[in-house]
């Protein structure tokens, strides 16, 4: 089955790329929190829940939002859209924050609003809530971006008619180091209305190229 990437967003090295276009670049990078807030404001996303999210959720949420701004999934049923995300550090970035609230017994203040983010799949939950996505979803952890693994899983879903569209890729966040590549994969042959972007074949080589050269 031929599948295509019909929209993608890559956020890394202090820049945001959507479908080959540089949307944002921060020359004077201070930290991730400042960077992502600046992108959020520039893109006028207007979703107050964004501020409550942890860093990895903000990163994945924003990358996905930009993918779907460029290419709508409104035509699909909620159940026909799936999400397969992966990263290297799981939720370790937030795990450290939760650990800091409990490591001193004289200053013990664990908080549900931090603890809930100590699971990597929460970013999928945030994306599902915003975009009303109810289909198959999974979060995987691998040392580095593994396009073959992503391909095997996504391809199998389409082959078995479990999905008509899939958001997939890499959402990595640790300290101030981040890298997100979110791709929208759809079946070939569907009318393509994004004039500025020619869809890319969904395969391991192309995914590698997107990850390394964009």
């Amino acid at each position: 089955m031929e599948l295509t990437v019909t929209s993608f967003c890559h956020i890394h090295e202090n820049k945001v790329i959507v479908n080959d276009n540089l949307l944002f670049f921060q020359g004077n990078f201070i930290n991730f929190a400042d960077f992502i807030k600046t992108v959020y404001k520039q893109e006028q996303i207007n979703y107050p829940k964004f501020y409550k999210m942890d860093s990895v959720s903000k990163l994945g949420f924003l990358a996905t939002d930009l993918v779907l701004k460029a290419r709508t999934i409104a035509g699909y049923a909620s159940e026909a859209v799936g999400i397969i995300f992966s990263n290297s550090s799981s939720s370790l970035d937030t795990d450290v924050a939760h650990h800091e609230t409990i490591c001193d017994r004289s200053n013990y203040f664990p908080s549900p609003s931090v603890f809930v983010y100590t699971l990597p799949n929460i970013v999928i939950g945030e994306v599902c809530i915003k975009h009303k996505i109810k289909g198959e979803n999974a979060f995987l952890v691998s040392e580095s971006f593994d396009p073959q693994m992503i391909f095997n899983i996504v391809h199998e879903h389409f082959e078995n008619n479990r999905m008509e569209a899939c958001l997939c890729g890499w959402v990595e966040m640790m300290g101030n180091k981040f890298n997100a590549l979110v791709m929208l994969v759809e079946k070939d042959g569907r009318a393509h209305d994004t004039a500025s972007f020619a869809p890319i074949a969904f395969n391991v080589t192309k995914m590698k190229e997107l990850f390394e050269h964009n």
Binding site: I122, I129, H131
Partner: peptide, 18 residues
Amino acid sequence: SISNDANHISGPSRTGEE
């Protein structure tokens, strides 16, 4: 099969539909 509620990150669906 796997699904998502698209409702809340720490509370389940109100209806159980998903």
